[in-house]
Computed example of a mutant assay.
Amino acid sequence: MSETQPKTDKDLFQFLDGLGIAHATKEHAPVFTVAESVALRDEIPGGHTKNLFVKDKKDNYFLMTVEEHAAVDLKTIHTVIGAASRVSFGRPEKLMEYLGVIPGAVTAFGVINDTDGKVKIIIDADLMEYDTINCHPLRNDATTSIGSKDLLRFIAATGHEPLVLKVTA
């Protein structure tokens, strides 16, 4: 296990710049829940995300990024995402170890810290209908807007295969 420091938002932005991916970030008060972040909607257009960090009984980890109001059925989602069993939420320690973020700051951008490929990332198909997707830039006091296809390109550039699946009800 590597004891390297998780990458910061600045590392993330440099990585995106290196890929030639346009992105824009808006600072705001820290938000920990979708409800708290709704006030930002008028200021930040596009699809807003919520992220579920889950694991199955074989300790396979998954990060599901879905539209903020989407419902995910945790009793059946394992059949869609290829988990070995029903899933439960991953512990905060694993969230920090694998994605370099704390609860409340979970983001698709976290895969930049998963250099060992421990986490399978799934983007909900409905979210991909937005031209712009908004995610936390590894911290919850800012929102970074990125093109939906560019998000997939970013994920692939981190060594992960972005799976676009219909995971919402």
Rank of each mutant, 00 (worst) to 15 (best):
I44P: 06
I44T: 02
I44N: 04
P45K: 00
P45R: 02
P45E: 03
G46A: 03
G46V: 01
G46L: 02
G47R: 01
G47P: 04
G47C: 03
G47M: 07
H48V: 07
H48T: 11
H48K: 12
H48S: 11
T49D: 02
K50E: 10
K50F: 08
K50A: 07
N51I: 04
L52S: 09
L52M: 11
L52D: 10
L52V: 08
F53Q: 00
F53P: 00
F53D: 00
F53T: 01
F53M: 01
V54D: 04
V54Q: 03
V54I: 14
V54L: 10
V54W: 02
K55L: 04
K55F: 01
K55G: 06
K55Q: 05
K55P: 09
D56S: 14
D56H: 09
D56V: 13
D56I: 13
K57F: 05
K57T: 15
K58Y: 09
K58F: 08
K58G: 10
K58Q: 15
K58L: 15
D59Q: 14
D59C: 01
D59I: 01
D59F: 02
N60C: 08
N60F: 06
Y61D: 11
Y61I: 11
Y61Q: 14
Y61F: 04
Y61L: 05
Y61S: 11
F62Q: 00
F62G: 00
L63I: 03
L63Y: 12
L63K: 05
L63F: 09
L63P: 07
M64I: 07
M64L: 15
T65N: 11
T65W: 07
T65C: 14
T65P: 07
T65E: 10
T65Q: 06
V66S: 10
V66K: 06
V66A: 14
V66C: 13
E67A: 08
E67L: 11
E67D: 13
E67R: 15
E67G: 06
E67T: 13
E67H: 12
E67S: 09
E67P: 08
E67W: 14
E68A: 12
H69P: 06
H69C: 07
H69E: 13
H69F: 14
H69K: 15
A70Q: 12
A70L: 06
A71L: 12
A71Q: 15
A71H: 14
V72T: 13
V72E: 02
V72F: 02
D73N: 12
D73C: 02
D73L: 00
D73M: 01
L74Y: 08
L74R: 04
L74N: 05
L74T: 05
K75G: 05
K75D: 14
K75M: 08
K75N: 10
K75Y: 01
T76G: 13
T76W: 09
T76N: 13
T76C: 05
I77L: 05
I77M: 14
I77T: 11
I77N: 09
H78M: 10
H78G: 13
H78T: 13
H78K: 11
T79Q: 15
T79G: 06
T79I: 11
V80K: 14
V80Q: 06
V80L: 07
I81A: 07
I81W: 09
I81H: 06
G82C: 04
G82N: 02
A83K: 05
A84F: 11
A84T: 04
A84N: 11
A84W: 15
S85T: 08
S85V: 09
S85H: 01
S85G: 09
